[in-house]
Design a protein around this nucleic acid. Structure first.
Length: 454
RNA sequence: GACCCUAUCGUCUAGUGGUUAGGACACCACCCUUUCACGGUGGCGGCCCGGGUUCGAAUCCCGGUAGGGUCGCCA
């Protein structure tokens, strides 16, 4: 008997990927990788009017961004296109014959009947016991409404199967062994279990994971800030951080660590350790983690992500020598929490149009400081080697001669070179900009002050 | 309304009958420092309430309360 674990993520292409859905996908993926099983991606696109290829791409792109690769499922967003795996098609819109066959089976077995053009499933009235791997044993009784009419529609009068039915049929046909999904499906699981039995098979194992809530504890819907995975993609969070953070929402390594390599999470992840209560989404912690990941990441990877972000922001990074770009970007590594901060933080490297922070200019470009800047300009012009250590010692020498703290010179100098009061290490940034640019920028600052004094 | 799940600092969590209830984010203070960030040190802050069980409950049981979910020809 084949005991390979088969799990699936079965999103509906609605045009967005909810952060809770992303975590459901992640937990399924983790369980598949942990057990050496198979992770299936199935697109539940039964709502034809609403589903588009773009909506499917949102899901595929989101999963790829997170690094969650699927062993079976669509290769593209085209329902009729290529796929991986031999249990397809993996788009529900392509599986109508399967549903028709399975409806027929229930009909002939007497588990379903036609009613006003629709087909309803004969649901049992007795309580159904769910043995959930996370929640434990749940005895689900009928609600008062259900008690009035326990049967439910599985095929609409227009011939379209409803979610509960197609979902169960596909899990059955695709050999899904573990259904890991949001707790919002726990109550419905009774229906699913009874349908599996009607088909004459044992239902899969169920694992209902707690939900992700807003910071205020209310349900997180598309409308809420931070509810969509796309915001983290667009804001330039480190995808590794999003994955790591999501792992920690409902699961814990229990050893007080937070930053954990994925391989290790894969090795240690298991269903029973998942907590049972809902979690509120803490953007601040994710932001912190994103910063940590950027700091820890290799220079090559950061360079890759950073150039992409800079280019996207409109900076003409390509026109600079690669060695220059690399050096510039490395001075920013570990200083930012998201890539979206990068254009503002490092833009001065890639444009000579330095605009001075008005408040800082008023405070720092005083006549006295401008005089000192002029002195610094001459000193830098005459430097034998234009390197960070040389620049630092030259500046400190001058500060000593003037009898002031180095910071008295540093702040105006930074403003002249970058237009800002914050940024990468000053001496390194100056070295990378190079003598020509730096002298030009000092001249500009001097001219700026000159024009202001008139 | 009925049914189901849950309940430890503001947030994420460790904790499974005996702990000064631990860690992380956030926040505050100080240190480091060319800015910012990082790092370091310290601080603030918690077992929802009420009954049991027990020599002893955050931990077990019951009841409240609160939050979440489900009862669709939505998914």
């Amino acid at each position: 008997m084949d005991t390979t674990v088969r799990v699936r993520f079965a999103p509906s292409p609605t045009g967005f990927l909810h952060i809770g859905g992303a975590r459901t996908a992640l937990f399924n993926w983790l369980y598949a990788r942990h057990t050496g099983g198979c992770f299936i991606l199935r697109i539940e696109d039964t709502d034809l009017a609403r589903n588009t290829r773009e909506a499917v791409d949102v899901i595929l792109d989101g999963l790829r961004w997170l690094g969650l690769d699927w062993d079976e499922g669509p290769a593209t967003s085209d329902p009729a296109g290529p796929s991986k795996g031999d249990r397809g098609p993996y788009f529900q819109s392509m599986r109508s014959s399967v549903y028709a066959r399975r409806v027929q089976e229930l009909l002939s077995k007497g588990y379903a009947y036609e009613h006003e053009g629709a087909i309803k499933f004969k649901m049992q009235r007795e309580p159904v016991t769910i043995n959930d791997l996370i929640v434990g044993e749940v005895k689900r009784e009928l609600t008062d409404r259900e008690a009035e009419d326990p049967d439910f529609v599985i095929v609409r009068s227009d011939g379209q199967p409803v979610f509960h039915f197609s979902n169960v049929v596909d899990d059955l046909e695709m050999g899904v062994t573990h259904v890991i999904r949001g707790e919002d499906h726990l109550s419905n699981t009774a229906k699913h279990i009874v349908m599996f039995r009607a088909f004459g098979v044992e239902p899969p194992k169920y694992a209902h994971i707690p939900l992700i809530l807003n910071p205020d504890g209310t349900k997180m819907s598309k409308r809420d800030k931070g509810a969509l995975l796309s915001v983290y993609q667009e804001q330039g969070y480190a995808p590794e951080a999003v994955v790591n953070y999501l792992c920690l929402l409902g699961w814990s390594p229990k050893d007080n660590r937070e930053i954990i390599p994925l391989e290790e999470i894969v090795a240690r992840f298991d269903l029973p350790q998942i907590v049972r209560h809902n979690a509120r989404f803490d953007m601040a912690k994710l932001l912190w983690m994103s910063g940590e990941y950027f700091r820890l990441m290799s220079n090559d990877r950061f360079y890759e992500l950073a150039t992409e972000a800079l280019t996207k922001s409109g900076l003409n990074v390509q026109s600079f020598p690669d060695s220059y770009v690399r050096a510039a970007i490395e001075t920013c590594k570990g200083k930012l929490k998201t890539l979206s901060e990068l254009p503002v933080y490092a833009g001065f490297y890639f444009t000579d149009e330095v605009t001075y922070d008005p408040e800082a200019a008023a405070r720092l470009f005083t006549p006295q400081n401008i005089g000192r800047l002029a002195g610094l300009r001459e000193a830098f012009a005459g430097l034998a080697s234009f390197t960070a250590p040389e620049l630092e010692s030259r500046l400190k020498t001058m500060a000593a001669q003037l009898g002031v703290k180095p910071s008295e010179l540093v702040h105006p100098l930074r403003l002249a070179c970058t237009g800002k009061t914050i940024g990468p290490s000053l001496y390194h940034l100056i070295e990378i900009l190079g003598r020509d640019r730096v002298l030009a920028r000092l001249d500009r600052a001097l001219a700026w002050a000159e024009s202001r004094s008139k």
